[in-house]
């Protein structure tokens, strides 16, 4: 019973955060709205006994990604007035149809066992601990995991290579130590 209450509260918080994210005039408030939603999601993970995922959710998304967002927003300057004229015709109508479709898909998917996974996983109190996650990452899905790692490394190296040797390469101004 208490879980239902908590879920209701945090679901409302998550939705409120999402609405703030979309409607806030100021990008800093948008970032804060997204942060609130991420926290609420981390709490959902805790309720599902996935403590590791919850910790990583906060550490990576709330901790690193959103801080960078905020940093960039502040660097670019938050005082710029945003153009509020809608450029895509029928924008709201299309959004409404897509949102309705998504809602239907979610409701239908919620009835499938392979999505909700209620009894598909093993012992319920072990799901989401570090050991279980490590077992899946480094046991069952090693190849997929390593390919992802490889892909991300390629992307990182590619970014550096473009910055250094690309058409608009930054001229090396070596001023790191000295002074």
């Amino acid at each position: 019973m208490i879980e239902v209450f908590l879920f209701a509260i945090f679901a409302l918080v998550a939705l409120a955060g999402a609405v703030v994210m979309l409607t806030a005039r100021n990008p800093v408030y948008s970032a804060m709205g997204l942060l609130v939603t991420m926290f609420a999601m981390a709490l959902f993970y805790v309720m599902l006994d996935a403590h590791f995922v919850a910790a990583v959710q906060i550490l990576v998304y709330a901790g690193a990604v959103m801080t960078l967002f905020l940093f960039v927003i502040m660097m670019i300057g938050v005082d710029k007035k945003e153009e509020r004229v809608e450029t895509i015709p029928f924008q709201r109508g299309i959004t409404f149809v897509v949102a309705l479709g998504l809602a239907v898909v979610i409701i239908l998917a919620g009835r499938q066992a392979w999505v909700t996974g209620s009894d598909a996983f093993g012992s319920p109190d072990m799901v989401g601990t570090i050991e279980t996650v490590a077992d899946s990452l480094f046991g069952t899905w090693t190849i997929a995991f390593l390919s992802t790692v490889f892909l991300l490394t390629i992307a990182a190296v590619g970014t550096v290579a473009l910055a250094m040797f690309g058409p608009t390469a930054v001229q090396s101004t070596d001023e790191e130590e000295g002074a």
Binding site: A55, V56, I58, A62, G63
Partner: peptide, 8 residues
């Protein structure tokens, strides 16, 4: 991880 998450 909890400690790291909160300190961030």
């Amino acid at each position: 991880l909890y400690v790291l998450a909160l300190s961030s």
